[in-house]
C-alpha cells in the first residue's frame, strides 16, 4: 500500500516539467538571500539610532585584511544582579539597556536575561555573552564581569582604509552609529570621526 502510493507520487513527480523543480530551487535560494537583505534593510531603515564609542583593541586582532574588528565601551560590562545566576548556555543571549549621556553617546545602564520595557530615549540592545558565563563550581553561572558581543564588531572597509581607521580608533575619535530594531537586533549604520560621518551604510 505504502509502496504503491509512493510509486504513484513518484510518477506524478516525473510528469512535472524539469524546469519547474529547478526553477523552484533557484527561487527558494534567491528568496532566502532576499529575506536576508530585507531583514538588514529593515533594521537600518526603521531601527533607533544609537551612537557608540569604540575602544582600543589589540592591534594584532584589529585588522584582518579588509575586515575591521571593533570593540565598544558597552562591550565589557559588570554583571550586576546577574552575578552568580544560572547562565543557561555557554554564550547566553542578554539584553542591555542603553541611555545617552550628555554628549549623546549611549552608555550601558543594566544587563538583563530577558527583554525589559524601556522609555525613550533608552534603547534595549540584544547581545550574546562571549565571556563571563562560566563561573561557579559547574561553570554555568554568570561571573561578575561580562564580555558581550552585539554583532556590531565586524566592519568591512574599502581596501587600504583599515590602517587609517585603526589610528582614529586608538585616538578615540572613531564612533559607530548603530540602528537598533525593537527586538534589540542591531546593525552598523554609520561611522563617525570626530562626530562627522565618514562611512554611511547604503541599503544596497
Amino acid at each position: 500500500m505504502t509502496e504503491t502510493s509512493a510509486a504513484a507520487l513518484a510518477e506524478r513527480w516525473r510528469r512535472i516539467p524539469k524546469a519547474v523543480p529547478f526553477g523552484a530551487a533557484a527561487l527558494i535560494q534567491l528568496t532566502l538571500l532576499a529575506l536576508m537583505v530585507g531583514d538588514r534593510i529593515q533594521i537600518l531603515r526603521d531601527g533607533t539610532e544609537v551612537t557608540l564609542q569604540t575602544q582600543l583593541l589589540d592591534p594584532r586582532d584589529f585588522l584582518r585584511g579588509d575586515y575591521v574588528t571593533l570593540d565598544y565601551d558597552i562591550s565589557q560590562l559588570p554583571a550586576g544582579p546577574l552575578k552568580d545566576r544560572p547562565a543557561g548556555a555557554r554564550d547566553p543571549i542578554v539584553f542591555v539597556k542603553l541611555a545617552p549621556n550628555r554628549d549623546g553617546i549611549y552608555q550601558a545602564i543594566s544587563v538583563h536575561t530577558e527583554a525589559v520595557a524601556v522609555k525613550s530615549p533608552e534603547v534595549l540592545i540584544r547581545g550574546r555573552v562571549a565571556s563571563g558565563a562560566n563561573c561557579g563550581p559547574k561553570g554555568d553561572l554568570f561571573c561578575d564581569k561580562l564580555l558581550i558581543r552585539y554583532d556590531l564588531e565586524g566592519y568591512f572597509v574599502p581596501e587600504g582604509e583599515g590602517k587609517k581607521l585603526e589610528q582614529l580608533r586608538n585616538e578615540r575619535k572613531l564612533m559607530v552609529v548603530a540602528a537598533v530594531a525593537p527586538t534589540g537586533r542591531a546593525a552598523i549604520k554609520r561611522l563617525l570621526v570626530d562626530g562627522k560621518p565618514v562611512y554611511d551604510e547604503p541599503w544596497f
Binding site: 536576508m36 537583505v37 538588514r40 558581543r149 565586524g154 551604510e201
Partner: peptide, 13 residues
C-alpha cells in the same frame, strides 16, 4: 551569495 550579503551588512558575528 550568503557570504556576500554577510559582507555587505557586516554580519561576521
Amino acid at each position: 551569495g550568503i557570504a556576500l550579503v554577510g559582507q555587505m551588512y557586516n554580519l561576521g558575528g
